[in-house]
Design a binder for these strands. Structure first.
Lengths: 245, 245
DNA sequence: CGTCAGTTTGAGCGAGCTCAACGTGAGTGG
DNA sequence: CCACTCACGTTGAGCTCGCTCAAACTGACG
């Protein structure tokens, strides 16, 4: 497990913030629920590590569950592995978002999490987080909220897999990334996809070929300009109208 | 309907238990995490209502979120409704299981819940439950566990919708119901499905016709004996081997 | 006995899959 | 600096599973 070997003294090249109070993401992340003295207490239990390289695992399925994580920069892919070794991507986590909650009900992680590009994350030991959330009710509340949000996210994916066409699924994913980027004050119309076509297909229940074809079709319809992983949404309104809900 | 003729003081014909300590489900339900004095405290916040008729809603999407619920008898269907009014079944809840957690992160319920047959449920006001779980850490822990289990359930459904054939999906659902019945000390091989073919199809991302055809095929292959909603699993091993993971 | 919701069965179609070939760019080693 | 490799992405052709549409069956209930 990478978590254990974190060096807390290393400066992160991406982000000078070494505590929640200064972190650019604090409006999105856990601290949003807290007052400044409470943030300090949360801050003290958080472990910040060296940056993760592309392809580095944060945890594997079956590893003991110790912590949940917040993304500071980069992008993380969460996925299950069934007993035939087939992967199912269950989510992509962008800066300000929390992942690793799948392990909570179980002694070990059910899912795995891997870094899709150079990323920085905060590790939050779960048992200490539990204690703290007994002392800080708004933290407990926020935590329930986060888990519930994970549930409704998953349920939206379920609806999509069950009811929507390939085009609708991809329009929905692109719209979602657009919204999440905008929330981080980044462009909602020009961005780089952190994941491969295979990851997108896996997440959306489609083959790589179908993903590629839909991208080409969207480009022909002048909804997108695609250059490998660089995406420019040229008609966000029409893309949104294609998307689910 | 005949609802008016139910008397809340009358003994419930299904279950004489009026408190968690005596409830047949307490080994599966919330109290499993608690000591007997703690169970009393939980017991005091739980509201038990008259039985629900088939088709009766526990809550609609958009209603204020107040409570979570435990199934005492019967069966509950949880589903989302997207803005075109299309339903997506997200789960079936059997006795001993908890539902309604989708509302936690939000002011209002995201999903709806409806009774599939005559059912009895316990209502647990969430704000009192939150207070209590601050005082009883093992209750907080159990609650985290339940929510996390909901997440992993949803993720299994995601994998199924994304990767499995119609036959695998239906084999998985039947196996799941079989296991959950066995946990309640009921037959794992002979039971009555509480939901319609349409509900099954909706849940599994299939049409009614496909569900019906797969049931017929399974019967021809001597995996099942189907008589409307009565199911006898005649070859559980082979059914399990068809099922996902 | 008629109605109506739920279910079953058949016939034909199509979205997305499979298989196959080719293109592209980053990394590697001579 | 080029040749080679290898992962990733695109495009085409044909097939298949589950969908759509249609019709008939069943049982519960008035």
């Amino acid at each position: 497990m990478t978590g254990g070997s974190f060096n807390m003294d290393a400066k992160c090249p991406h982000n000078g913030a070494v505590n929640c109070g200064d972190c650019r993401m604090n409006a999105l992340c856990l601290p949003m629920a807290l007052q400044s003295d409470e943030i300090d207490r949360l801050d003290r239990i958080i472990e910040r590590g060296r940056p993760l390289q592309k392809g580095e695992y944060i945890y594997h399925a079956g590893e003991p569950f110790r912590s949940i994580y917040a993304v500071r920069s980069g992008a993380i892919k969460g996925f299950t592995v069934n007993n035939e070794g087939v992967e199912q991507v269950t989510g992509f986590y962008l800066p300000g978002e929390i992942f690793g909650m799948d392990g909570i009900g179980h002694p070990n992680h059910i899912n795995a999490a891997v870094s899709l590009e150079t990323s920085a994350i905060c590790e939050i030991p779960f048992s200490r987080m539990e204690e703290l959330s007994i002392q800080i009710p708004s933290l407990q509340r926020h935590f329930f909220t986060l888990m519930s949000r994970e549930i409704t996210n998953d349920q939206q994916l379920i609806t999509m897999l069950s009811k929507n066409s390939a085009e609708e699924r991809i329009a929905t994913l692109l719209t979602s990334i657009s919204v999440r980027n905008a929330r981080r004050k980044l462009s909602g119309t020009r961005f780089r996809l952190p994941m491969s076509r295979a990851d997108i297909g896996n997440y959306l229940g489609l083959t790589v070929e179908t993903v590629s074809r839909v991208f080409s079709r969207f480009q022909k319809q002048e909804l997108l300009a695609v250059d490998k992983k660089e995406i420019e949404i040229t008609d966000l309104e029409r893309l949104k109208s294609l998307a689910n809900t």
